[in-house]
Amino acid sequence: MSKTQDQVLGHGDECDGIEEYDNDLPAWWVGLFILTVVGGIGYAINYHFVSETSQLAQYQAEMAEAEAQWPAMDMTATVVVTEEMLAEGKDLYMTNCIGCHGPEMKGGIGPDLTDAEWVHGGTFNEIQNTISKGVPEKGMLSWEPILGPQKVQKVTAYVHAAGGGQ
């Protein structure tokens, strides 16, 4: 196979003078073609019949693995607030919350967080709950689906500490 003799076929008078060589298919090209066909069919057989996987099965495996690595948080358990948490919580506040509650927590669209009044309760758990679930009727988002429980807890720690929670 794969001889490159550069013999023209003599089609020229039917092709506006364009000639064609009778060169063979390049061997590596044939090899590539066979490889992709065999590989492709092999992949399909393996996917559906040998490992019998599916996108759903793979998704469930991914979720289970994550569940094992990062078990669901118990949001009601008492938290030991660390300096680290407060620092991260502050960062989160500055990117997500200042739009409504202001850089000094003095409020704006949302209420003042430094005064003594807590519209939805001022204990750690109550603040956390407000942030998690949001206050849709007043326009505050439910943050847990956005930030995830850990970050909600961190920002709660910051707000509770800096805002003088109960």
Binding site: D6, V8, I18, E19, Y21, L25
Partner: peptide, 19 residues
């Protein structure tokens, strides 16, 4: 391409079988 490349280059098409 099969028309203009051989025309431009003044060369025959490399392989009829491949085409």
């Amino acid at each position: 391409m099969y028309y203009f490349v051989p025309k431009t280059a003044g060369r025959p098409v490399y392989s009829y079988r491949l085409s």
